[in-house]
């Protein structure tokens, strides 16, 4: 069991990726085709937050359980922590793009029923659609 415990942090990252990556295919996003744009979005922010993280850990604001992370460390931080600053922004961008895809679908597609009243000018309600990528039309 102790060896499984080392996966605890990595499991969280896998969970986020498993939740976010299907958005790309389901909503036919073009995020991964724009690798330079993705680098521009993630690298500066990750650098800033790693710097914050290094200062905060050296100041003792937080620390990581060696039993629940892999042994690899870089400047004292678990490697999972560096991955966090790539995975979480990526998941955020995928979610943001998925929400926009839902919104543009609504704007461009006519209501399915011809007699349906005109759609109210509301924004996307993606908590049901983007949050459950296996449901709905596709």
């Amino acid at each position: 069991m102790s060896s499984w415990r080392h996966l605890s942090y990595a499991a969280m990252l896998a969970f986020v990726l498993l939740g976010a990556m299907p958005l790309h295919r389901y909503y036919r996003l073009r995020v991964f085709r724009q690798s330079l744009r993705l680098l521009v979005a993630i690298v500066p922010v990750a650098t800033l937050f790693v710097a914050w993280d290094l200062m905060a850990t050296s100041a003792g604001h937080w620390r990581f359980d060696p039993a629940q992370t892999f042994a690899g460390r870089l400047w004292g931080l678990p490697l999972e922590e560096y991955a966090f600053f790539v995975v979480v922004p990526l998941a955020g961008i995928l979610t943001f793009e998925a929400v926009q895809a839902v919104g543009s679908r609504r704007r461009s597609a006519p209501p399915p029923a011809a007699l349906a009243p005109p759609a109210p000018p509301q924004g996307p309600t993606p908590t049901t659609q983007a949050g459950s990528p296996t449901a709905g039309p596709g």
Partner: peptide, 11 residues
């Protein structure tokens, strides 16, 4: 973290 990333992404 996410606002800055999305902001740079859109920019």
């Amino acid at each position: 973290l996410v606002l800055l990333s999305c902001g740079l992404w859109v920019w």
